[in-house]
Amino acid sequence: MDKKNKKSKLKSVLNPLNLSGKAFVYVYALILIIPLTFAIITAFKTRAELTLNPIGFPESFSFDNFVTAWIDGDLLNATKNSVIITGVSLLIQTATIIFATFHLDCIRDTKIGTFMYMLLISSMFIPSVCAVTGLALRRRLGLYNNLIGEIICGSTLSAFGVFIVSGAVRSLPKEMREAAQMDGAGDFYYMAKIMTPLVKPAITTVALLNFTSKWNDSLGAILTLRDEKLWTIPMSLLLNFKGQYSVRHEIMFAGLIMTSIPLIIAYCVCQKHFVAALTGSVKG
């Protein structure tokens, strides 16, 4: 039996289809790596080397570009803004999602509960074209060109988040809620101490997705944060290093690499959650 298995395994490995599949995977991996490699190489080049020798290796590795990028791009200030905006709005939004999901779940058997849930969910399938009116609204409300506005608008209820978390909450047995109530647990206690830990994977998933989208948002922030002091990391990379007439590639890439390192570390640490995040969106 074992021998047979081994034989069929060998056969399947040597199958031309499998081999071409493997080749395909490696070629695609190469396509992924090439731009990143060139970005890293370029970050170590001087301006002269870049023009003379665009695709070769630099002669010496110096970190001058990184220092220039950090100072010229005002990346310290940008990091501060990014951390404030992303951190606060992520915390508030996640709490909002948990809270709303809990209350929606409590009334999910009633007509009004179903209606409210469907109202929120159906908004996911309607193409959103509200950027311009949303911007005008924020101007009117004084939420334009300041960090508070960015935080408030980033903390609103997210239909996608509620969708994923309520999928997990629905799978919890109803008896648990009743038992908790019997033992005298109030709504808030049940939500915070019993429900939340049980649906932690779903919440982590949603929080991670929201984190990357907030942290990486550049186009939305460019519309609302006009003041240079308020720029976030992706914005300052884009607006400082990609001038209208000249692009200083070597400094730009130094900045890009520096600011991407935290993300790469975050990805390596919770890579499983990142991937589960997207799978969750299907299962939910």
Binding site: L32, L237, H249, S260
Partner: peptide, 27 residues
């Protein structure tokens, strides 16, 4: 690994690729 680029910001990806596509210096 194929998932990894998704954690990068759109501006980082586009700046990298606009260098790849650049007419003179481009890779």
């Amino acid at each position: 690994f194929f998932f990894m680029p998704m954690v990068f910001s759109g501006s980082m990806v586009c700046l990298t690729w606009s260098y790849m596509y650049d007419a003179n210096l481009g890779v």
